[in-house]
C-alpha cells in the first residue's frame, strides 16, 4: 500500500461527514417540498373532480422554488365535450 493511499484511507470519515451534510441539506428541503406539492395537487384535483370528469394522465403539476417567491403551476386538460360529473350540491 502506498503512502498516498494510506493517507486517503485515514480520511474516509471526513468524507462521510461532508457527503451527509450535503445530502441531508438537500433531502430536508425536498421532503418538505414534495409533501406540499402532494397536498396541493390532491386537494386542487379533488376540487376540480367534483365538477368535471378528467383524465388523471392529462394533469401536470410543476413547482418552482425561488428565493422570494415560489410558484405552483397546475395544468388540467378538459375536453370540449365534458359535462358536469355530478349535479352541484348532490356530490
Amino acid at each position: 500500500m502506498s503512502l498516498l493511499s494510506f493517507l486517503r484511507r485515514r480520511g474516509s470519515a471526513p468524507v462521510a461527514h461532508q457527503r451527509l451534510q450535503i445530502l441531508l441539506a438537500h433531502e430536508r428541503a425536498v421532503i418538505g417540498q414534495s409533501d406540499l406539492i402532494t397536498v396541493l395537487r390532491e386537494e386542487i384535483l379533488a376540487g376540480i373532480a367534483k365538477h368535471v370528469r378528467m383524465d388523471p394522465e392529462k394533469v401536470q403539476v410543476k413547482m418552482e422554488r425561488g428565493d422570494v417567491v415560489s410558484t405552483l403551476e397546475v395544468e388540467v386538460e378538459i375536453p370540449l365535450n365534458t359535462r358536469l360529473a355530478a349535479p352541484i350540491g348532490k356530490a
Binding site: R9, S12, A13, A16, H17
Partner: peptide
C-alpha cells in the same frame, strides 16, 4: 477508529 479518522466521530453525527 473514530480517532484515526476511519469512522464518523460523535461530534460529526451530533453536528448533522
Amino acid at each position: 477508529r473514530a480517532k484515526r479518522g476511519e469512522m464518523l466521530r460523535t461530534e460529526d453525527v451530533l453536528d448533522i
